[in-house]
Simulated scan of single mutants.
Amino acid sequence: MVGWRRHILHSIIRRVGNSPHRNLSAGVECSSGRICLAPLPGHFPFLQRALGLSSDVIPRSFYRYLQESGISSSRKLLAESDANITPVRSPLTPVLAIDSGKTESQAVVSKPSKVQAVRKDIKQSPKKVNLVAALVRGMRVEDALLQLQVTVKRAAKTVYQVINSARANATHNHGLDPDRLLVAEAFVGKGYFKKRVSYHARGKSGIMVRPECRLTVVVREITAEEEAEIARLRVSKFLKLTKRERRLVPHQLIETTPRWSRKRTPE
């Protein structure tokens, strides 16, 4: 393989050696008809190994052929481009920060309209979790957390944690007011339904399904119109409120289970 490559290179050198152009852009001519390179020993290492030359001397005709063909090494290209290099704007850099000359701390950060929190792999049926999610959907965050504390359902703890996480994301990450947050959306998605073996009598067996789901809670700040409506509903009395108005201003906690089926707790 090396002999074949060396044969091809020697044929190229012999073809170029009869060219009338003798001027060179770089290098110093030695007495032996070769070009002594500048102290950059790593120009063409694979060619020098193939031709059996030293690290600082290559034939003049071959060097001229490489110069006329525009072939060079990465070291020389980098050395020549250092003087004329111009900075290029990165596509990942914000345009406003570069044009205005402001730092990241001085730049105005716009608050998002909605912030969400997602919990995956909930070991419960989507229908059961959605019953609790629909209970607090449309409530203020403070009222929703208070309602979930008295809700006697296993999914109440999961929904409470996701709403609390969404409030923390909106407060600490995006700078929203925690007292003006509203549960805009609370929806449940279906996850993996794992199938397991269920053993029956008389040596028979069946399939037992263990469902999973995911819960997404989206919170947002209350608008000025909603604040005015809440203030009006709190002042007015003896009015029959709609379902949406009762969620904005819950006058009493909603009972989710009958009183006689609850477990008595020691006082």
Rank of each mutant, 00 (worst) to 15 (best):
K237I: 09
V249F: 11
K243F: 02
R244G: 03
T242I: 03
R244N: 08
R234E: 06
R246L: 09
E245P: 04
E227P: 00
L253C: 08
L233C: 08
E226D: 15
R246E: 13
Q252S: 13
L239S: 04
L241S: 10
R232S: 15
P250M: 07
E227Q: 13
F238T: 09
R232V: 05
P250F: 04
V249A: 09
F238P: 00
E225S: 14
E226Y: 06
R234T: 01
S236I: 05
L248G: 06
E245G: 01
E227H: 07
A231M: 11
E225C: 00
E229N: 07
E226P: 06
L241D: 11
K243H: 02
E245M: 03
E226M: 12
T223L: 08
A224C: 03
T242V: 02
Q252A: 14
L233V: 05
T242W: 03
I254N: 03
R232H: 14
K237G: 12
Q252T: 10
E226A: 10
R247V: 04
Q252R: 10
L239P: 01
L253R: 11
E225L: 11
P250V: 01
L233G: 09
S236V: 05
Q252V: 05
R234V: 04
K240T: 15
L241H: 06
R234D: 06
S236N: 01
L233T: 05
I230M: 10
L253Y: 07
H251L: 12
I222G: 02
T242S: 08
A228W: 08
S236E: 15
A228N: 14
K237L: 12
F238L: 11
R232F: 12
A228H: 10
E245Y: 02
K243V: 12
F238N: 15
E229F: 00
I230N: 02
R244K: 15
E225W: 00
I222N: 06
S236Q: 08
K243C: 03
V249D: 04
I254K: 02
R246F: 01
E227V: 11
E229Q: 12
A231G: 09
P250Q: 05
I254T: 05
A224G: 02
A228G: 13
R247Q: 14
E225R: 12
A231L: 13
K237D: 15
V235T: 12
K237E: 15
E226Q: 14
E245D: 05
T242R: 02
E229K: 11
F238H: 13
I230K: 07
A228C: 05
E229W: 00
L241A: 09
R244D: 09
E225I: 04
H251S: 11
L248V: 01
H251V: 08
L248K: 07
P250L: 08
L241I: 07
F238A: 13
L233F: 06
A224R: 04
T242L: 04
I230Q: 09
